[in-house]
């Protein structure tokens, strides 16, 4: 006998499993995904070395690199996931099944977190072992909590974006391209954004990784935060449920739209 809980839990776990398996089936790709991004990270580190910047900037780069791994995954995988499901002919099978669509989306996001974790571990390890970044052990538990909160927010944002990607109707990579550079710029992945005008800092704070990075920089390297830390943590804590509700609303709207228009589940439309 299938219960309602089965239709929530099993689709989420199985979709996460699918994502993890698919992301790790070709060992060469796993290695490339985990290690190549370290090169762009190194470029920033050597720029700071050359400029004679304070060592804390190298720490900024490593933290930013770790967060960038998740942001890239959110943009290129989670946000565009429903688009790819449509192209693979799976969206119709999802809509026709009794499975919770939010569970499937959560499963996709969770699988993405697991897959990206290796890249993050490699980034941090290179930061410590190669570039000599020191993370104060006493700050690690609290920093990990903030990091986890920021990552949950990021993936919730990705879930909310996924339906928007599909409704926008253009090919997914155009939207990802559109978001990649501006967000990397305003969120200050490799540098503090305190020298931005206030309005730009406020805009940047809407991106979860801006606040996450800001708090972690303060914890590990003592740099000043944009807002007070409790406020930043509060914003991060509120963002996740708000974005998840948004994701649910967008998904429901997308399903209704697809049934009304009759074209959203079809490929190449």
């Amino acid at each position: 006998m299938t219960s309602k809980l089965d239709l929530i839990v099993k689709p989420a776990l199985s979709r996460a499993y699918v994502r993890v398996i698919m992301g790790n089936r070709v060992p060469a790709e796993v290695v490339i995904d985990a290690f190549l991004p370290v090169l762009s990270l190194a470029a920033y580190v050597y720029t700071y070395y050359f400029l004679g910047a304070s060592p804390q900037y190298v720490g900024f780069v490593v933290l930013g690199g770790a967060m960038l791994a998740f942001w890239s995954n959110v943009l290129w995988s989670v946000g565009s996931q429903l688009y790819w499901e449509k192209e693979d002919g799976n969206l119709e099978a999802f809509f026709m099944s009794p499975a919770s669509k939010m569970s499937l989306l959560t499963g996709m996001a969770f699988g993405g977190v697991v897959n990206t974790a290796l890249r993050v571990i490699v980034t941090i390890a290179v930061g410590i072992l190669v570039f000599g970044v020191h993370f104060d052990p006493s700050q690690i538990p609290e920093a990990l909590s903030v990091f986890a909160l920021a990552v949950i927010d990021l993936y919730a944002l990705g879930m909310a974006l996924s339906s928007a990607y599909l409704l926008e109707g253009r090919e997914a990579w155009h939207i990802s391209n559109l978001l990649t550079e501006p967000v990397s710029f305003i969120s200050g992945l490799y540098y503090p954004i305190q020298f931005f005008p206030f309005w730009l800092q406020a805009l940047a704070s809407l991106v979860p990784m801006t606040l996450g990075l800001d708090i972690m920089r303060r914890m590990f390297f003592g740099s000043p935060t944009i807002l007070s830390e409790p406020i930043e943590v509060g914003v991060l804590a509120v963002m996740a449920p708000v974005l998840i509700v948004l994701a649910k609303l967008a998904l429901d709207y997308m399903e209704r739209f697809s049934k009304r228009e009759g074209r959203l589940t079809l490929k190449w439309q």
Partner: peptide, 19 residues
């Protein structure tokens, strides 16, 4: 289905959509 998954894995995944 998913190209990188086997026949059996694909069927298992779709079975999970029905709990």
């Amino acid at each position: 289905g998913y190209g990188m998954l086997t026949v059996r894995e694909n069927l298992w995944f779709f079975s999970q959509l029905y709990g």
